[in-house]
């Protein structure tokens, strides 16, 4: 859980920073997309970096889901008889309680997101347009519901990471700085969420066009 989660977080950091290139204009963004495809060439064949990243991500997501499912199954086995009274959570961790179904929502989002901006299947411009055109068309003002969906999904990711990051540090044995680790995880999650939502919002209100 912790290790696969960490791989996904590293990906998210890179992905968020790359996305911000949209603010530097179409050329910069398209060049970046091109660079991802051709980095290392001609020494390496095209898409080397992308293919490695894609395989890594698929493996991480699958193992992450596998760990989540096995934890849930162990939990169900450890408490075969449920409490009759409604269990009142005492720790107040809202983010903590959304990990399992929140994870599923994030997965559904990731699928839509790939169909939208990677394969262009559900994108008005289709798969042949440049990445920048797809981005601008995808979040066009009249497709505000797409933007809303992205915002909700980013909020879910923020919650997921708020607990997940700290939980991973705890799992990896970093003791003794409880408050600092918790605050740090919240801050990193917040920065990621803000960085991600800036782009759909900017496109919708016409700052990026």
């Amino acid at each position: 859980m912790a290790v696969t989660g960490a791989v996904l977080v590293l990906f998210l950091v890179g992905h968020m920073l790359g996305n911000l290139k949209a603010f530097l204009g179409a050329d910069s963004f398209n060049h970046y997309a091109e660079w991802l495809r051709t980095v290392g060439s001609p020494a390496l064949p095209n898409r080397t970096l992308l293919t490695i990243a894609e395989i890594g991500l698929v493996v991480a997501v699958v193992l992450h889901m596998w760990s989540a499912v096995s934890l849930a199954r162990r939990a169900a086995k450890a408490r075969p008889v449920k409490y009759a009274a409604r269990v009142k959570p005492q720790a107040g961790g809202y983010a903590t309680r959304t990990m399992r179904y929140g994870g599923v929502i994030i997965l559904l989002f990731v699928i839509w997101h790939l169909l939208d901006l990677t394969f262009g299947v559900v994108n008005p411009k289709g798969g042949q347009a440049t990445p920048y055109d797809r981005l601008v068309a995808g979040f066009a003002p009249d497709r505000w519901w797409v933007t809303v969906f992205y915002l909700v999904a980013m909020a879910m990711i923020g919650l997921h990471l708020r607990h997940g990051l700290w939980s991973a540090l705890q799992t990896l044995g970093l003791a003794g700085r409880y408050k600092a680790l918790k605050a740090g995880s919240t801050a990193v999650s917040a920065v990621l969420v803000v960085g991600f939502i800036a782009i759909p919002l900017a496109v919708m209100i016409g700052v990026v066009k």
Partner: peptide, 15 residues
């Protein structure tokens, strides 16, 4: 013993 896995929910320390 068949106890579940910890996901750091913090419910334990609260009670």
């Amino acid at each position: 013993e068949g106890f579940g896995g910890c996901t750091n929910t913090g419910e334990c320390t609260a009670v």
